[in-house]
Design a protein around this nucleic acid. Sequence first.
DNA 1: GACTACCTAGAGTATATACTCTAATAATAC
DNA 2: GTATTATTAGAGTATATACTCTAGGTAGTC
Lengths: 226, 226
Amino acid sequence: MKTRDKILLASLELFNEQGERNVTTNHIAANLAISPGNLYYHFRNKSDIIYEIFQEYEKLVDFYLDIPENRPMTLADMTFYLESVFDGLWSYRFFHRDLEYLLDRDPRLRKDYREFTNRCLASISLIFEKLADSGIIEPQPESLRAAMSLNVWLVITNWMAFLKTAHAEQASACLTLRELKQGIYQVLTLEIPYLTPAYREQVLELREKYRPTMPEQEGEQEAPVN
Amino acid sequence: MKTRDKILLASLELFNEQGERNVTTNHIAANLAISPGNLYYHFRNKSDIIYEIFQEYEKLVDFYLDIPENRPMTLADMTFYLESVFDGLWSYRFFHRDLEYLLDRDPRLRKDYREFTNRCLASISLIFEKLADSGIIEPQPESLRAAMSLNVWLVITNWMAFLKTAHAEQASACLTLRELKQGIYQVLTLEIPYLTPAYREQVLELREKYRPTMPEQEGEQEAPVN
DNA sequence: GACTACCTAGAGTATATACTCTAATAATAC
DNA sequence: GTATTATTAGAGTATATACTCTAGGTAGTC
């Protein structure tokens, strides 16, 4: 693999594990056993590395959320979208953690992320629309759909932060993809009241599969050590 | 005012304006025209300043979310809770921005914040319960109420981050309390399907008051300059 | 073999930042 | 008034971090 790609890969891994703020360019170089000079030969600065990683993320999610216009949407489709989005969140999980700081630092990123958000919101809204077309959820006026989509987005993008802050131990270490996907439970919670009788039970069953196993919100009870 | 209190006040203000990450202890001292030594006489380190500010925040929200058990809940109560929580978010808005980093840095804060979250979730759930008692929303099983409360929490705590990232300009400068309170619109959106016919119109009217004036999600249209 | 384009090492630098240390000054107690 | 305690100034430090610079190696081509 080319050094340039190795740098991107190692950066992503370190960022995800330790947070962008805690990973220096020197760390990245050391991790790859290359010199800082070498790293800066391939990237002008740290921002450029982050920007390029973001573009990968963007591309991935855009790919997942490309809604086919020519056929009705099934429950399986919806599940796929949800699973995919959370997979994406997981793979680039460092990004949402330090989002505001990163956007303040890099105007390119701010602009791109803003457009990315709008595309995602549009996709979510389209999904709702097509779910209504398929008779899975009741159709809703456009304005409500927009507000609902925004809520879905807020839940999705904030779920990981919630998990990390709800954990007793340090955030980075103990978080699994499985736990992250319990966010799907929360998203489906939003849909419940809009489900048609025909699909209600099916979706509720699907939702159960993502029900948190560990009691997340009842944090008072620490795990007994002995 | 005592120097100690001035430090807390100036720190909060600077943190809110520029983000904790961008405000150094030297900045705080300079802002107050005192010496760094003086600052460190009053606080052992930066973490202690942040921790103390958090405790103020906690106290404030706990005060707001103290639900009276002995009387039914009115729409006015609900409005008050929503307004208050967003006021609190505004006054201590730096906190949620760098939350994960702060919690990683200070175990006390992690523990306290975790318990704080649980108290808030319990309050939200209690509010739903009492709203059902008052016939404002339909009663729901406890498990659904818990999931709904968590969604409300996610929307509330992530709304500001969304606003900042949706803005085209740098985050810190252009954000008003008024815009922040449009988050109430999103929270009320979550309630819509559960409203009883008797209160539906009233709540929808209330919700309209918080409807975003500027088109937030249609970011493509930049303001025409000429 | 020599030219070129690409790649790499590693020491080094400017700047920032959290924090310390000493000494001096103000406030208070007796 | 004097002893003590609380407060303050301000220079200074250890460490970190993003990034630079120079020199040299490697691979392919003719």
